[in-house]
């Protein structure tokens, strides 16, 4: 406990917490992306995967708790560090401070982080809690079922991204996430002291951070881009037709 308090109270310790929680979140981002990309393998593949996650509560809930804890630590250390940094210079310089060698991503990390947090809330309402009001399709995502009777995640993705404001917000948020990561991963390697030269390449972790951000951006945005370009249109339209036919039939029965 004493050891943990020491870390929490030291400036370097808070950076470790920031970096390590960030690392766990990045691992989740990669796993989530691998899940998303299964959409290109077709409905049965991604729906099986979704079913698998949802049926295993002993994996799902611990993972959710760990992620929430990490988000909490990440934000808490950011707030603490920010307050200390503000206090460290009570009187500023005349004029705007020169950005001097600092990257745009590093100067805006707080802002990009806040926007990402707002997006995550929307994203959870949209696809996890499936709140009808935020998906703009006027459909209830929680009732979608595929031919095998499983929740139809494939259709949900297609419907979700078929609304362009949703897709555009998603792409912007992922862009900000990658901006945040291009600084954050570099800072993480720096905070834990990993700066080796490997195979003649100096500052390998810094380079990894930059390329990682670009790759993540391309792979994540490939899903909404593909949907907007017409990917899965036939499946979506067929499903929507079936749903409205079903609704009419239900009304008939009720009558």
């Amino acid at each position: 406990m004493n050891f943990l308090m020491k870390i929490w109270h030291s400036s370097l310790g808070k950076k470790y917490i920031m970096g390590i929680s960030g690392f766990v979140l990045v691992s989740f981002i990669v796993a989530h992306m691998l899940g998303n990309l299964q959409v290109f393998l077709g409905p049965s593949w991604i729906n099986t995967y979704g079913q698998l996650l949802h049926d295993n509560h002993e994996i799902l809930w611990p993972a959710r708790i760990v992620l929430l804890t990490m988000i909490g630590l990440h934000i808490w250390s950011a707030v603490k560090l920010r307050a200390e940094n503000r206090a460290a210079r009570p009187v500023g310089y005349a004029g705007d401070p020169a950005p001097l060698a600092s990257s745009y991503a590093s100067r805006t990390a707080m802002m990009s982080g806040l926007i990402i947090a707002a997006f995550v809330i929307f994203h959870l309402l949209h696809y996890t809690l499936r709140v009808r009001a935020v998906n703009l399709t006027n459909m209830d995502f929680s009732t979608l079922r595929d031919s095998a009777g499983r929740p139809d995640i494939y259709l949900m993705l297609l419907l979700g991204f078929s609304k362009w404001p949703v897709a555009v917000f998603y792409i912007i948020a992922v862009g900000l996430l990658c901006l945040h990561l291009s600084h954050g991963m570099r800072a993480m390697f720096q905070s834990v002291g990993w700066k080796w030269t490997f195979g003649g390449v100096s500052h390998l972790p810094d380079r990894i951070a930059r390329w990682f951000a670009v790759v993540i951006f391309i792979l994540y945005t490939s899903v909404p881009t593909a949907v907007m370009c017409g990917f899965g249109k036939a499946y979506r339209e067929a499903a929507v037709q079936q749903l409205s036919a079903g609704a009419v039939a239900e009304k008939e029965v009720a009558r």
Partner: peptide, 12 residues
């Protein structure tokens, strides 16, 4: 009471 490093690189 110094601030914390946010790895901007301005110092360098």
């Amino acid at each position: 009471g110094f601030g914390n490093c946010t790895v901007t690189g301005s110092c360098e």
